[in-house]
Simulated scan of single mutants.
Amino acid sequence: MDAEAGAVGAGEDLSSLIRRALAEAGLNQTWLARETGIPLPTINAWVNRTRGTDGRIDPDRLRAIAGALPGVTVAEVFESAGRRAPGDLDAEREKKLLRLYRSLPTTQQRILIEQAELLARTARAS
């Protein structure tokens, strides 16, 4: 499949991906803002490259973009934003992690959060 048919082009950045996907679907940035809950000025800044996207965008926002844009996957959005695609969301793993977290004393909960934040920063950096 070529880039015009909807594939993420090699090296396509987030701005290009959003522009292309919106144009192909006949949608606009206002629609994307409404669908994702991301403020229109933020989306506009990403599309116009006036605000950096190099690993700074919250993963939940990237997932929201992927969920809203027709024909675009989570992996494509993360890749276009210069990030490694996260693992699939798995409700059972989330439940297990939450159950473990709730079973810990407050001090250990804080340690777990610090470790998770460190893992997330490490994942963003690589």
Results as ranks from 00 to 15, higher is better:
M1N: 03
M1Q: 09
A3M: 14
E4T: 02
A5Y: 10
A7E: 09
V8N: 01
V8T: 12
G9N: 01
A10Q: 13
E12R: 05
I18K: 15
R20L: 04
R20K: 10
A21K: 07
A21Q: 07
A21N: 08
A21F: 03
A21M: 02
A25D: 09
A25S: 14
A33G: 15
A33E: 09
A33T: 08
R34P: 00
R34W: 04
E35L: 14
T36E: 04
T36Q: 08
G37E: 10
L40M: 13
T42I: 13
I43W: 04
N44D: 06
V47D: 02
V47M: 10
N48G: 08
R49H: 02
R51H: 13
G52T: 14
G52Q: 09
D54T: 06
D54E: 11
G55C: 06
G55Y: 05
R56G: 09
I57D: 09
D58L: 07
D58S: 08
P59I: 10
D60C: 02
R61T: 01
L62Q: 05
L62F: 08
R63I: 06
I65F: 12
I65N: 10
G67D: 15
A68T: 03
A68S: 15
A68K: 05
L69S: 06
P70C: 07
G71T: 05
G71D: 07
V72I: 15
V72R: 13
V72L: 14
E76T: 10
E76G: 15
E79Q: 14
R83V: 05
A85S: 14
D88Q: 11
D88I: 01
D90A: 13
D90K: 12
A91R: 07
E92P: 04
R93N: 07
R93T: 01
K95Q: 08
K96F: 13
L97G: 11
R99A: 13
L100Q: 11
L100G: 06
R102H: 12
S103T: 09
S103E: 07
L104C: 14
P105N: 13
T107W: 05
Q108S: 11
Q109L: 06
R110E: 06
R110L: 04
L112E: 01
I113S: 10
E114Y: 02
Q115K: 11
A116L: 13
L119V: 02
A120K: 07
R121L: 03
A123M: 10
R124G: 02
A125F: 09
